[in-house]
Design a protein around this nucleic acid. Structure first.
Lengths: 342, 342
DNA sequence: GTTAGCACTCGTTTAGGTGGAGTGCTAATC
DNA sequence: GATTAGCACTCCACCTAAACGAGTGCTAAC
């Protein structure tokens, strides 16, 4: 059987209607709702076909139809067209540049949740490709050395190293020079064992302690960043009866609080061919507690190659149009902001 | 009317029983449950008295009794005796020292939630009373100066300052010396406007730019720390039917996610006279969404005067004994750990 | 002062009944 | 052949009434 134009229109109407009401959609509704001028009986026949083809489901005999995952997928793939949309609040918020990334992201998540009435999550941009800009060691206390590393994008890492043996001012100065000459301009992923041992060689004489320090600095640079995911609007799931029953809600809330699983959604390989927008419907998502949800994620980029991901989690009947629109706007805004101020 | 020994015993029995079952407790249950050897009729009379006195409540005529806030308060105040308790997991976890405070706290919250089956929260220790140990300015880029401040307890603050006019190496050196001489050893709360202007005077010549830098450093030092509160086990509220209905659950979950309100519970003035353990029953808590909960908080101390608070949120019928015991153990463990490794 | 007993209350559960939305099928119509 | 009107049927959602039972307050006897 083929999905002709009329079937497509009916499917579209079923999904649209279900998105609005959250209730199974009957043939009579469609008959009135569309401009097809068909009787409910005809619609019924078509709907029977659509069901056979797997696009819609009947919760029980003599109930209306609801979209299946396949139906949603069809809808998202073919019918969704992105609309640019004003998100005034968000724009205003982002324009007043904040200095703390953390706060910005948390706020983006919050505003997004308020705007969409869904649950949101956002991962902090990874800086794996970024270049080291500045390294400095300073003695802060006996046996304690502070290592500060500044990476492009002005991300600062620091670490206190405890050394067994005191380092002279001279050695420290030499080490600083050495580290800066060798590391500045390299991206984090470019720093490898080979160069570290080369540096140790150059450091020469005090190789024991100095070697330790160099190792520690390298470790600090390479250290995996924390799992930085910010969430908001988790409680929005209670707006959608199909997600709000205790068991499901509990699972979902746990997922949002624990955050580990969210990583699977947010740190997907960025397939840069596209707009960076991904839609996961039901079981398409790698997170099992979201089997009754849909997830839309968007990759954002902050000028200098730092990339993170924003995600929106809602019921399958989420307003895909609006969500995708909002995410696109947000993408471009984030881009702008950081181009101007980066 | 007076709360004699028999009434006390009955009240205690009612509360104990309610803690276990979560159901209103009838007179017959008490008659069997206690060793008083009284008939249910007698118990009924006593319970009527207790109700009149405000210690217990009847959800409706012909239902059993549930403790009122006053009843819980009485129970907590008089009957609760702290027991030392093994919290093996927690001990093990804390013994393997982690370097990132954030991770430790997050993990403590999680383990605590798993142990107690309640929702938990923990605030990062504040360092307001701590002393500045080291200050350093370095040029990282044109017009960009990195200020690093190390405070006792090896807490590091840093900030990138953007300056309009380039500072010479010499000026920077001078500034570093000035800042260190003036600020080292002072606690953050001791740094005030007077000293800042004195420093500016000493700085002399380049007062314009230099003044700016000094201000920025002072700001960075005084900057309110982020609202660092970690939560876990929020979804445990679904274990307790009296908290699990949609509206209440939604409110509570929001409170836990937003975290702002939790601050009111966790950043109370530490009344150091006591063990640092506080119990809020129902409306005693400043957070309205917790009107049906009880909250137990414990102040912990990390050696050098840094203090934070741990909180446990559960139903009013939470196991106060266990919770207080667990928190006390945790307090002492945290203390030990940081004495050994601080 | 304590207890047994009883009438009473009131929320909870169960069963039955009804209405309505929606279907599938068939026969008539275009 | 496609469309439609009509009808019998299904099944959920909702309501009501009845039965249940846990627990009470009160009274009278011990």
């Amino acid at each position: 059987m083929e999905l002709d134009e009329r079937k497509t229109k009916i499917l579209q109407a079923v999904i649209r209607n279900y998105l609005e009401t959250g209730e199974p959609v009957g043939s009579r509704t469609i008959s009135k709702y569309t401009d097809l001028n068909l009787s409910s009986a005809t619609i019924r026949n078509e709907m029977a076909d659509l069901e056979e083809m797997g696009y819609i489901l009947q919760p029980h005999t003599s109930a209306g139809r609801t979209p299946s995952d396949k139906g949603y997928r069809f809808y998202v793939d073919t019918m969704m067209e992105a609309k640019e949309r004003e998100v005034v609040e968000m724009k205003e918020m982002l324009l007043e540049r904040q200095d703390k990334m953390e706060q910005v992201l948390q706020r983006v998540a919050k505003v997004l949740a308020q705007n969409t009435q869904y649950a949101t999550m956002i991962s902090a941009p990874k800086m794996a490709g970024n270049k080291v800009k500045f390294v400095q060691l300073s003695r802060v206390d006996e046996g304690q050395i502070l290592a500060v590393i500044v990476v492009e994008g002005n991300v600062i890492k620091n670490n206190i190293l405890t050394v067994r043996e005191e380092l002279s001012d001279e050695t420290l100065l030499k080490l600083n020079l050495l580290l800066n000459t060798n590391l500045t301009g390299l991206s984090i992923s470019e720093i490898n064992l080979g160069m570290i041992s080369a540096m140790k060689q150059q450091a020469g004489i005090h190789s024991d302690i100095v070697g330790e320090v160099i190792d520690a600095v390298a470790d600090a640079i390479k250290a995996e960043e924390d799992l930085e995911i910010y969430t908001s609007g988790t409680n929005n799931i209670f707006r959608y009866p199909e997600l709000a029953d205790q068991e499901k809600a509990s699972e979902l809330i746990n997922t949002f609080e624990e955050k580990e699983q969210l990583e699977n959604l947010l740190n997907q390989d960025f397939d840069s061919d596209n707009t960076g927008i991904q839609v996961y419907i039901g079981n398409e998502s790698p997170v099992s507690s979201m089997r009754d949800c849909s997830v839309v994620t968007a990759t954002y980029e902050l000028g200098d190659g730092m990339r993170g991901t924003i995600g929106i989690v809602g019921p399958k009947r989420m307003d895909y149009d609006k969500v995708v629109g909002t995410l696109k706007t947000l993408q471009s805004k984030l881009d702008e902001i950081y181009k101007d101020h980066g």
